[in-house]
Design a protein around this nucleic acid. Structure first.
Length: 330
DNA sequence: AGCACA
């Protein structure tokens, strides 16, 4: 009997918890001193999720910012936007997948999947503040969502924030179906009570209510045709050629000059199947190679950590690719 | 853009 090794090839964000610092930490000092900004997992076996702690901190931070008048909407920039707009999704995407894509991200609040009239699928994800939204945007933009079709996520800041439908941190998601043809959108509202619900279980075909959640639609969440780019050619019968051959070893670049092997290892050990890390400093800028048990594990880690900032990062977030050759087993 | 170890 075989184990369930052939899960869905799509993203499984089961272990993501890296600190995404504010892209531009503005006028406000870092939150508080009683909790470190980075909470590494100390290689424990027990499931450890700093998400909730950090989530609470972020909410506190946002309240402080609001009370200080930083959420000034007179600004022409988008500092007040804490919702991101996601396109490039395959049309068979499930709301659960969107939720699982974002639920572990720092500062996540809620998300909604939307079927547009043009038979496109887009999603909105809201965070507790602008920085968290930007961190998620930077981490997931350009990520291949479905390796089999090559569908690539295109993420940008939403034009306006989603209306808050659920209490913060409830982790709920919403489906809005505007398709013209017969719709098969089923669940409109779900909670994740338990921690581990990433398995690609069978879809439940209970199309009980449709359209009642469409009241959540507003001009805030309207989708413009120019806002949603045509996704990868998933219509063609053939599978699209991928950029780089997937490999169980990852190539990690854009590290800060002071990046240490320990620092990177602390992060990588949070991901399933991680084995060995090798750091190589060359001409000032170090690069690293991380070996995983298999390509799937490597892919998960890459997709979660893409663009993430380390404490030592000073030239932007991590740049991760599949290595060109597998790490020699030593 | 930068991909080693054997």
């Amino acid at each position: 009997m075989r184990a369930q090794t052939q899960a869905s090839p799509r993203l499984h964000h089961n272990q993501l918890s890296i600190f995404h610092p504010p892209s531009q930490q503005s006028m406000h000092p870092p939150p508080v001193t009683d909790a470190p900004a980075i909470q590494y997992q100390q290689q424990q076996q027990q499931p450890y999720d700093p998400y909730y702690l950090q989530h609470q901190q972020l909410q506190l931070q946002q309240q402080q910012q609001q009370s200080l008048g930083y959420n000034n909407q007179g600004d022409q920039d988008k500092k007040h936007i804490h919702t991101i707009f996601v396109s490039g999704l395959p049309d068979d995407v499930k709301p659960r997948e969107i939720h699982n894509l974002f639920r572990r991200r720092l500062g996540f609040d809620n998300c909604q999947l939307k079927y547009t009239r043009g038979n496109q699928v887009v999603a909105f994800a809201s965070f507790v503040n602008h920085q968290s939204a930007m961190a998620a945007l930077n981490a997931l933009n350009g990520v291949i969502f479905d390796p089999q079709t090559g569908a690539t996520l295109h993420i940008e800041l939403a034009r306006s924030n989603s209306r808050k439908i659920f209490p913060s941190g409830s982790g709920a998601y919403v489906v809005i179906d505007q398709r013209q043809k017969a719709s098969d959108a089923q669940d409109t509202l779900s909670n994740d009570g338990d921690g581990g619900s990433d398995e690609p279980s069978g879809d439940n075909p209970n199309s009980s209510n449709k359209g009642d959640l469409a009241t959540a639609e507003s001009d805030e969440t309207r989708v413009d045709p120019d806002n949603a780019e045509p996704a990868a050619n998933k219509q063609s019968g053939k599978t699209v050629a991928v950029k780089v051959q997937p490999c169980s070893t990852l190539f990690i670049a854009n590290l800060g000059p002071n990046c240490t092997e320990e620092e990177l290892k602390q992060v990588l050990t949070q991901y399933r199947g991680f084995h060995v890390l090798k750091l190589r400093a060359r001409s000032g800028m170090p690069v690293a190679f991380a070996a995983f048990e298999n390509k799937e594990c490597a892919t998960e880690a890459m997709q979660s950590l893409q663009g993430s900032m380390l404490p030592s990062s000073d030239r932007g977030g991590l740049h991760i690719e599949y290595a060109r050759s597998k790490m020699r087993k030593v």
